[in-house]
């Protein structure tokens, strides 16, 4: 059993040519991870809470204007700037999953990690999250409901990873490619999000990488994100 599933390099590929900005991933993430919805006033105050957000960029001017979508979530950096600044080690690196873990019950809310994250994907619960009864019936019991004063972020759906890993380990077999799907990748209608283990040479992500269109967000910072973006293209006719 020891030889199976020791370490993994969980990796996400985001194909910007396929992302339509439809928000299916956003709602899937809210449902899966018990992420509260910020009220109108909170959104106005800049305290919207989404573990995954679709940024929209304009390019050019009317009539040759383009809108480009960029889904941004925790980049699960190998050299994560959020980790060394946490005074209580709530933000730390998982050696076996190779992702960045936020331990809510350790977090004391200094917000240093959010401050240090260049991707602005760490979110702070300024107020106690509120669900009007019986909306809380929908909660995913596999994910802690975070209280006020706690920092939270995308976990690559660690609860799904753990569930599969625990079963695979108990059954003494390796995790199969595709067995783990984070909620966002699962929902994405166009399959713009592809998730897998980069250490597994047979996995889809390993086969897709390196890709001619690939880039990483703020690559020059040396954070070594585990999220690869594939540039969108454009077909021209008549040239």
């Amino acid at each position: 059993m020891a030889e199976n599933n020791t370490t993994h390099k969980w990796t996400m590929i985001v194909d910007l040519d396929k992302c339509t900005g439809c928000q299916a991933c956003v709602v899937a993430c809210h449902a899966e991870n018990n992420v509260p919805i910020a009220s109108e006033d909170q959104v106005i105050a800049g305290r919207g809470l989404h573990w995954i957000r679709i940024e929209r960029y304009w390019e050019g001017e009317y009539p040759d204007v383009k809108a480009k979508f960029l889904p941004v979530f925790c980049q699960q950096c190998n050299e994560a700037p959020c980790e060394p600044v946490c005074p209580v080690y709530a933000s730390h690196h998982s050696e076996q999953e190779n992702i960045n873990i936020q331990t809510y019950n350790r977090c004391v809310g200094t917000r240093y990690c959010g401050n240090n994250c260049p991707y602005r994907v760490r979110l702070f619960n300024y107020y106690p999250p509120k669900w009007d009864e019986p909306l809380e019936q929908q909660f995913n019991p596999d994910v802690t409901v975070r209280g006020p004063g706690v920092m939270e972020k995308c976990t690559f759906c660690i609860q799904r990873i753990r569930r599969v890993r625990e079963v695979a380990n108990a059954e003494d077999r390796p995790i199969e490619d595709g067995e783990i799907q984070p909620a966002c990748a699962q929902a994405c209608p166009t399959t713009a999000l592809v998730f897998g283990d980069k250490y597994d040479e047979e996995s889809l992500v390993s086969k897709m990488l390196p890709h001619e269109r690939q880039f990483k967000l703020l690559e020059s910072l040396g954070t070594e994100p585990a999220v690869y973006y594939l540039k969108g293209g454009e077909t021209h006719v008549g040239e």
Binding site: E95, E97, I101, I158, Q159
Partner: peptide, 15 residues
């Protein structure tokens, strides 16, 4: 235990 994963990895128990 021989495998120390559960010692160092918070996510084993906290998520």
């Amino acid at each position: 235990q021989e495998n120390k994963d559960a010692l160092y990895d918070c996510a084993v128990c906290h998520r």
